[in-house]
Design a protein around this nucleic acid. Structure first.
Lengths: 197, 197
DNA sequence: GTCTATACGGCGATAGAC
DNA sequence: GTCTATCGCCGTATAGAC
């Protein structure tokens, strides 16, 4: 039973260590011995905290997604105009990369494969949910005239989704470029293009 | 000794089968037994053709990269203006995804991890080479006034690179959307943005 | 070029002591 | 909550017959 204070429990520490390794090397490339070594314990001791390696990545992903989609729901429910909501959705995505880079990386790298197992069927559901969010925002943008009428909305959705999340491959929290600055530059390119006006 | 006719050798067939599995499930998630099963032979028989599983992915990646970078060099060496060269580089990248989706997927998913081993050091070199190509084109674009003067060229490079290659995640050759059509839409968004003018 | 048979290590996971 | 000790399986790879 995790307490709700700021104190990280041992369990949380171990999950954070596992998340870093899963993100760096991949789920399959990371052994339970790797995780235990990084935590300064022996591999058998991990099983006092978790059922299996699979349940570790499961908890990492589901916890992150619960938080992320609550934030998307907030944006969807707001009464701002379409363009503002799109900007907010982009900014919160970059903020998520900043706060949870390992979780985003794991999701990006492993979701397709893990999603083939029944246990991780919720990954596909979340994916559909995310699609709904973006398609709703983009369609509203086109209908209200905020976005170009000749856009292929589905293609644009893929474009926006991929481009936002793929930043996790090179973005490092605390580096020279803040996530807010990246989101701003990204929105400039996305909305107005790179061509000289 | 591979002959230079159009006839696929057994070796080439096996590499194509391995590439498909590596792309679908990941290198580590694919066993030599998986590859052999898909080829209708037993795992031990693979070792008549290849030293190891590692040497298979090595050959897949290096062969693909040799072809890809020859194409980039062509663009760089041409005397078209900056904008035209950028458009050509984008189009040839989508064409590469169309012709070699498995190879692109493997490179996208595995290069970071494989690159940590000496044997795959050339992956980092190719990465630097690719960076040079795009930075040269984008810088020339800004200097000649084809692109906006306020662009962060490094960030734009990452943006273009990531967005082009990440399409391998959803593009399927022979599907409803041709790679030429995707490249055209992509260039429209990249150059002019999605915002209503 | 493929099969039979097998070596060998590393893997996830378990049981019980401390 | 961690350690000791270990199990059984599955992974890559090998040797030699056909």
């Amino acid at each position: 039973m995790p307490d709700s204070t700021a104190t990280a429990t041992r369990r949380d520490e171990l999950l954070a260590i596992a998340a870093r390794l899963f993100a760096e090397k991949g789920f399959k490339n990371t052994t339970v011995r790797d995780i235990a070594d990084a935590a300064g314990i022996l591999s058998g001791s991990l099983y006092h905290h978790f059922d299996s390696k699979e349940s570790m990545v499961d908890e990492i992903l589901s916890t992150f997604q619960t938080e992320l989609f609550a934030a998307y729901d907030d944006v969807l429910a707001s009464d701002a105009d379409a363009r503002t909501k799109i900007e907010r959705a982009v900014r919160l995505s970059f903020a998520a990369i900043d706060r949870h880079p390992d979780e985003v990386a794991i999701f990006q790298n492993e979701a397709d494969y893990l999603g083939t197992f029944p246990r991780f069927a919720y990954l596909a559901e979340r994916n559909a949910q995310s699609r709904n969010v973006w398609m709703t925002l983009l369609t509203e943008g086109v209908e209200t005239g905020a976005l170009r009428a000749d856009l292929d909305v589905t293609l644009t959705y893929r474009f926006v989704r991929d481009t936002v999340w793929v930043a996790v491959r090179w973005y490092r929290p605390g580096g020279g470029l803040s996530h807010e600055a990246i989101a701003a530059q990204y929105l400039t390119i996305l909305l107005d293009g790179i061509s000289h006006a």
